[in-house]
Each structure stands twice: as C-alpha cells, then as structure tokens.
Design a protein around this nucleic acid. Structure first.
Length: 561
RNA sequence: GUCCCAGUAGCUCAGCUGGAUAGAGCAACGGACUUCUAAUCCGUAGGUCAUAGGUUCGAAUCCUAUCUGGGAUACCA
C-alpha cells in the first residue's frame, strides 16, 4: 500500500526535476546534475504543505543566490496533477508548496477501505526477520530491564511485521553453563535446609526467595527422596524441575504482558546436538581459532575487535560466547535475512565480537543488528533500588503490571528511545496512573466510540464514504486531523527504518491531542446531515488509525473508559 | 587508560539521516461542563539546547576537544 503523502511527494519531486531540466535547457541555470534535494512537510503550516531546499543546494554549483535559483525554478514549474495551488519562495530560499485543501480528503475513504490494514506497508517485501529479545536467564524472575526489553522487542517486531517483513519473535533460553551450576547448588542448599541441614547458599549463588519456593515445591512433590541421593543426580533433578517451573512462569508473565513468542530456543540444545562443536570446527578450518595457555581462542582482532576471545576454557568447557556464535549460525541457517537482537547496555561490548563472528562464519555483519537499550533504574520512595538477582532484591515484571497496569507499563517503556536511561519511579507511576499519557490516547479512542454509540441510539447510520462531500471539512482542526491521519504510513516507515517504536508513541500522542482539540471545539452529530456525514467519516478514520497504532505498541483500544 | 550511551524548560523527555520563530507531558498560574465522556480543552509563564572551537547558505542535529553522569572493558553470562 502506498501512502498519499508519498504519492504527492513523488509527484512534486518529478515536477521539480522537470522544472530544473527546463531551466537548464534554456540556459537559465547551469548545473551538471540535479542535487539530492529534500521535500518535506514543514513544521509550520504557514510554510505550506511541502517545502524543498532545492534552490539552496543549487546556489553554489549554479553560482547564483538561492532566492534567484528559486525564482527561476518556480518560473519553469508546472504543477499539473500535483494538487499544487500556489508556490512561494520564503526565508533563505525555500520553495513552499501550498496544496488545494482537498488533497488530504482523499485519505479518509482510503482509511475506511483499508481498515485494520491502514498504514501497512511493503517495505520488507516479505524479507525474513528474526527479533530476539528478553532472553533472560531462566534461573530467576523477570525484572524491570527485561520488561523494557519485552515492550521494545515486541513493538519492534510488530512494527516490522506491519512494514511488510516476515517476522519471527524468539527467546533464547540460557539453560547451560555456569549459572545453571550455581542454580543447582543454590537449589540444593535450600532443599537440604528444608530438612534441617545447615548448608549455606553458596557465595555468588542465588539468594532470592523464589529459589526457596522452588525447593519447597520440589520437596512437596518428592519428599525426602533425594536427601541421600548422589549430589549430581539431586542437583540435576532439582534443576530440571525448577527450570520448567521458572520457564512456565516467564511464559505466563510475558503472555500477560501481551508478548507471544514464535520460538523458545534452548542454549543447551546447541551443546546436545553438537552445534557448538561443529561451529568450533568450522572456525578452526577457516583458521580463526588458535590455542594459547591450554584454551582455544577466536581471532576476533582480525575483525577489528580489540582483543581475541576465549572459545573453550582451559578446563575444556566452551564459553557462553562459543555457544552464542553457534546460536547465530543457527539463526542464519534458518534463513533469516535480518537478525535483530535487543540487548541491555551491559552487553554492548559483545556487539563487535558478535559481528566479527558473523563475518567469520561468512555472513554480512550488517545482517545482524543489535538494539542496545540503556538500563532501567528503579526508584522507590525517592531512593534508588539496587536490583540484583544475586541479592534477590528486585521488582518483578509481574509486580509492575499489577501495580501500574499492562498498558501503562508498556507505553512507559516504549515512549522513549532505547538509548536513553530510564528512571522508573514506582511511586510516581502508581500515584499518577490516571494521568499516564496512555490514558490520554485511549480516551481519544473511547470518545469516538461513544459518538458512534450515540449515533446508533439516535437511529442514525454510518455514512457511505463514497457519497460524502468532504469539502465541508473546512475548519482547521478538521484539516489538521486529516493531515495527521495521512502521515501514519510515513510514521510506520520511519519507525521501522529506525527500529524506533517511540516514534509511534509520539505520533499517537499527537493524534490523540488533535482529536481532543477538535472534539472540544466542534460537534460531530449536528442537524446538518451532510456535515455530520463528513465528520463521521473523519471520526471513523481517526479511530481506525488510533487502533492500528495502539496495536503496534501492544496497547488496548478500549470502547469506553 | 580505551570504548559505548546520555547532557535540551523547575522535573521527565521529544526533536525523524542539517532547515525557517527549539516542542510535549508533569509541576505553577488564569479560564471553559445545560453539550457526542472534563481521564478533555483554551490561555499565561518557563531556554546561553553542558562548554569551547570547526564544517556551510543554515547546527540542538555533523566533526574535534573539554566537563559531568551512567555503562563496558572476565578462561561470567
């Protein structure tokens, strides 16, 4: 689906190029080729519907003042079929185009026709994309950082899907390695403690209450059956039991948060199937592996990384990084053209390594994109809460949703860019939950629904968008609203291109603002049937757009509030 | 030390790959409900875009240096 704004823009761009050519032909301007100019919607509506910087770019090569160049261009400009009503030269040499207000009306019946697909694009041409996010260790509960990752990753995935990519959401389960060892030892200590044994939770182990809970659930199920068993067996049984329980919890909490995954991928499976070994062999064959101090190293420095990395430790165990390379190889082998990972800022050092590994495997490093999100700091009672799994002190995603609600939480995480720090004041979020911007947006949607309920009660019917006289929408708030609706596909494109859901969040807020503003100054249902019909279509189009945009952020569109 | 992110209104932050007079929410102040939902709207006030240079027609945006805050620099994951 192409966007109305894009259509007009490309028509104008063509007309401008024609004007430049015509000016060159008659010798008024001498340049070798057309500069790469922009054609944008000015912030100030006094500056027209579109503006171009072409004349300013021509000034230097054509050796004339920008305003002079603009003058010549406008003389040769013919606006045929582009809705242009008048052209003005302004400021340092901008050419501003003022369109017939009617141009924007055409967007309205189009929105009604496309409905839930309004704004859907084909930027991706069905390209296969994988978005991997959260991937928290299954040894604990989901915390605020995971919550941000969940909201961001899910929204990015939804936006890419809407932009025409074939998207798969994936969770990488870190069910192997050291932390699982620790997990087993911690569970074992708690289990034995339940039977009065004085076994402390190991230094660096997991001290959270959830470990105790898992141990006692295990006790309830198996009693003292494992008390005298071989320690390795006991730990294996505890780990298997607790992992299943934890993972079940993680799936449930994420699902309640509105996040559904297509694939849950186990790290352990990479070891079990020999994929890690195969990856090591492959890299060794290609000469990227060497031995030093009884460990195997990856020549990361050949790919511009500061230092080489250990793949297999001197104790014979592969590192997390080795498994991660195998994992990414697996991703590419599954046919993903574009692999996107959402990682916390504490993993940013891992990015160049991973890109280097992708190159070593023979893939384009650009096929791997990593969105780094800055950490979330939690404030409670005006004080910073130090979150750590080890100490067991943190606020879980589950608690967050209980306290501030799913929609407010998701909006909060997605309304600012990933690379800015996020201070989450829990007291404030709770106290101000009624003033949260997400309600402002949802209220706009609910208000429109209310208008249509009113219409039905009065025995009215939805107008046929093909039979409506849109030229009756002359008031500025109506035109502003329609223009904003026309922007939506462009917003989707830029959110997708920049992997930036906060653009959608901002767009929603602005759109809701225009709706509220219109609503307070004009009535939709009036005695004037023609005008009522036109405004009803405008309202319908607005509600469709609001709902589609809310959906991209995983937010509900409530009929009433 | 090196690398990454940030520094914009009292607070929290937008500002799309350089555009015209730097925006919004909260907080403050003054107004608007006999109306399709006031969870709303309208208005006032609030700024040396960290600092100093540079690039050019034009810089919050790009480059360099400095300052401040956070993070990364493991045979942890």
């Amino acid at each position: 689906m192409s966007s109305l704004v894009e259509e007009v823009r490309s028509k104008l761009a063509e007309a401008l190029k024609d004007a430049l050519q015509a000016a060159c032909r008659c010798g008024a301007i001498r340049v070798d080729e057309a500069p790469d100019f922009t054609l944008e919607v000015p912030r100030e509506k006094d500056h027209g519907d579109f503006a171009t910087n072409l004349a300013m770019l021509l000034a230097k090569p054509a050796r004339m003042s920008p305003r002079k160049a603009a003058e010549i261009l406008t003389q040769h400009f013919s606006p045929a079929g582009s809705w242009v009503e008048r052209v003005e030269i302004a400021g340092p040499g901008f050419i501003n185009f003022y369109l017939d207000p009617a141009w924007v009306y055409q967007v309205l019946p189009g929105i009604l026709q496309h409905g839930a697909d309004y704004g859907r694009l084909d930027l991706g041409h069905g390209k296969k994309v994988q978005v991997e996010f959260v991937s928290a260790n299954p040894t604990g509960l989901l915390h605020m950082g995971n919550a941000r990752g969940a909201a961001l990753g899910d929204s990015i995935a939804a936006i890419l899907d809407f932009a025409g990519y074939d998207v798969s959401r994936e969770y990488y389960i870190n069910d192997a390695g050291n932390q699982i060892e620790n997990f087993g030892l911690s569970l074992e200590a708690r289990y034995l403690q339940l039977f009065g044994r004085n076994i402390p939770v190991p230094e660096g182990g997991y001290h959270g209450e959830d470990i105790l809970t898992s141990a006692s659930s295990f006790r309830d199920l198996h009693g003292d059956a494992y008390l005298e068993r071989d320690a390795a067996d006991r730990r294996a049984a505890l780990v298997e039991f607790a992992l299943e329980e934890k993972l079940g919890n993680i799936k449930r909490v994420l699902s309640d948060f509105g996040v559904k995954y297509d694939v849950w991928f186990s790290e352990q499976s990479l070891h079990d199937t020999g994929a890690v070994q195969k990856t090591l062999d492959f890299l060794k064959d290609r000469g990227f592996i060497y031995e030093k101090e009884e460990a195997l190293w990856f020549k990361a420095t050949e790919f511009g990384v500061e230092k080489d990395e250990v793949m297999v430790r001197s104790n014979g165990l592969p590192t997390y990084f080795a498994a991660d390379i195998a994992y990414h190889w697996n991703k590419f082998q599954r046919g993903f053209d574009w692999v996107i990972n959402i990682w916390g800022a504490d993993h940013h050092g891992h990015v160049p390594r991973m890109k280097g590994a992708a190159a070593a495997l023979g893939y384009e490093p650009a096929a791997l994109d990593v969105v780094i999100m800055q950490l979330v700091r939690l404030y409670k009672g005006g004080e910073l809460v130090r979150m750590s799994k080890r100490s067991g002190q943190f606020v879980t995603l589950e608690e967050l949703v209980e306290e501030v609600g799913r929609d407010a939480a998701r909006y909060f995480f997605v309304m600012r860019s990933a690379d800015s720090h996020l201070d989450f004041d829990l007291d404030l979020a709770r106290a101000e939950s009624n003033e949260n911007p997400v309600y402002y947006i949802q209220y706009a949607y609910a208000r429109i629904c209310s208008i249509f309920r009113q219409l039905t009660e009065q025995g009215g019917a939805r107008p046929d968008p093909g039979l409506v006289d849109y030229s009756l929408l002359k008031e500025e708030p109506e035109l502003a609203l329609a223009r904003k609706l026309a922007d939506f596909p462009g917003e989707v494109a830029s959110a997708a291109g920049g992997l930036a859901p906060q653009r959608i969040a901002r767009y929603l807020h602005e759109l809701a603002g225009l709706l509220h503003s219109f609503y307070n100054s004009h009535r939709v249902i009036t005695q004037d049937q023609e005008l009522t019909a036109a405004r009803l279509v405008l309202m319908d189009a607005t509600s469709i757009t609001l709902k589609n945009a809310l959906g991209l952020l995983g937010l509900a569109a409530p009929d009433r509030m």
